[in-house]
Design a protein around this nucleic acid. Structure first.
Lengths: 247, 247
DNA sequence: GGAATAGTGTCTCTGAGACATTATCTG
DNA sequence: CAGATAATGTCTCAGAGACACTATTCC
């Protein structure tokens, strides 16, 4: 019985939680799987690196408020300038609600993961004294604010596994892209080397994963590469398997 | 910047949300994929079927409060008597935070999915006038309270896909179980018929999925079946694929 | 031409699916 | 013994991985 009020609906009777949306914004920069971090300017955890995020607007009389997704999109745009109309992907990760995860008050955080093509350096937001793309492994090694190490770890595993059975790797590259560029996304995120020939065959044999634009990319050494765009399919069946991960 | 208060930490400055944990408790009853629903005794949506759930305790001075997971476990136990020590599985689905999803006030719901062995009929909780196991397809056809149709749809898809690449089917059967019983879980959840011989080979060839107890189950017609228990592995590699679902 | 990168051909091996056969139980 | 259910044997086919080879581009 979601949200049933036993008698009368007096909001003051219901425990107040503050709600935030925290983002794990991931991208691939020059072959490195990277995440957007900000450096906190204020206590608690002043000076620590943290995930970007912010409060969800609850609304007042006259204004309807926003969902956690709305808040996440707003934060993503503020932080990176992206709005997902051309490429990129945002999805909910999970919600972190342990009492005590924020030392000040009861804050529940809905965490999101974003997959974006590299949008250039970050601008430090109003409440951060610094912002930067950080290699994921290095970020996991830092002591982040709040429970953000846990959130980041969960997000990294989500991204890695989603590349196996979805076409979301295309969200990391701008269109059009070559098959080698797409392969480098997998290699960066999974930390492995893939067999180029077999990778290309697999991707092209999966209905709706990519389609040729007809153009080629030249300019670098070697034979010019055909260009592709994402062709709409969401799932990869059967999945691409990341090698050697369980053994 | 999760939960940063720009100046001073005055909780009254932060928008109050009520937080609930809603549960999609699934099981397999006699070959039918089923979900626990309760019938609401009070407005809003009095008389409508809904997912079980309840408020998350925020805590007060002296009491620490609980996480959404704590609340979900409490609700699961109240509703079914189960505590997951022997079998069963509970995981977060996602959080639903659209403004207006509850007509009374701003309620954010963290939804969970539970996989449990059939625990017998439900007892109607304090705030429900009825409670029952309902076939999933029938439940999806009803007009449930709040946005519970959406939550249920998301949960059903989660369960179906989780059976592909995890060993969670074992959470639906009591131990020990026969391979035929395990196969009937897949058949019920996916709504397909599986080839018994190939299923048994696949399950046994997957390291750590099941292990023989050495006992057999007799009493029904035909050759007696060997008994198994879950052997600890969480993932099925390569995944079991549900047939014909995309085509 | 030579190095570098893209793309193709093809072989092997594994595993899924289909189906036939054998084994063991109840009545 | 007949029927039912469990378990095994084996054939075929698709797809992943490995590797050799061809194609095209820049220098």
């Amino acid at each position: 019985m979601s949200a049933r009020a036993p008698e009368g609906y007096d909001p003051s009777k219901y425990p107040p939680f503050a709600l935030t949306a925290d983002l794990v914004i991931t991208t691939v920069i020059d072959g490195k799987f990277s995440v957007a971090l900000i450096r906190r300017g204020e206590d608690p955890y002043a000076g620590r690196w943290a995930l970007p995020g912010g409060f969800v607007g609850a609304g007042t009389e006259g204004s309807p408020g926003e969902s956690a997704e709305d808040a996440a999109l707003r934060e993503l745009s503020e932080e990176t300038g992206l709005d997902l109309v051309d490429g990129g992907h945002l999805e909910q990760l999970r919600t972190y609600s342990e009492p005590g995860r924020d030392p000040r008050m009861r804050v529940v955080s809905v965490a999101f993961v974003a997959f974006v093509p590299y949008p250039g350096p970050l601008r430090a937001g109003s409440d951060a004294c610094d912002a930067a793309w950080v290699d994921v492994d290095e970020a996991l090694g830092r002591r982040l604010a709040f429970d953000h190490n846990t959130i980041l770890r969960d997000a990294v595993e989500r991204v890695r596994s989603k590349l196996e059975y979805t076409t979301l790797a295309t969200a990391f590259v701008g269109e059009p892209f070559t098959l080698a560029e797409l392969r480098r996304v997998y290699e960066a995120v999974w930390g492995v080397e893939l067999h180029a020939a077999n990778f290309a065959r697999k991707v092209q044999s999966c209905e709706g994963f990519v389609e040729e634009t007809g153009e080629v990319r030249r300019g670098s050494a070697g034979r010019s590469a055909r260009l592709f765009r994402h062709a709409g399919a969401q799932l990869v069946l059967p999945p691409l398997m990341r090698p050697e991960v369980g053994t």
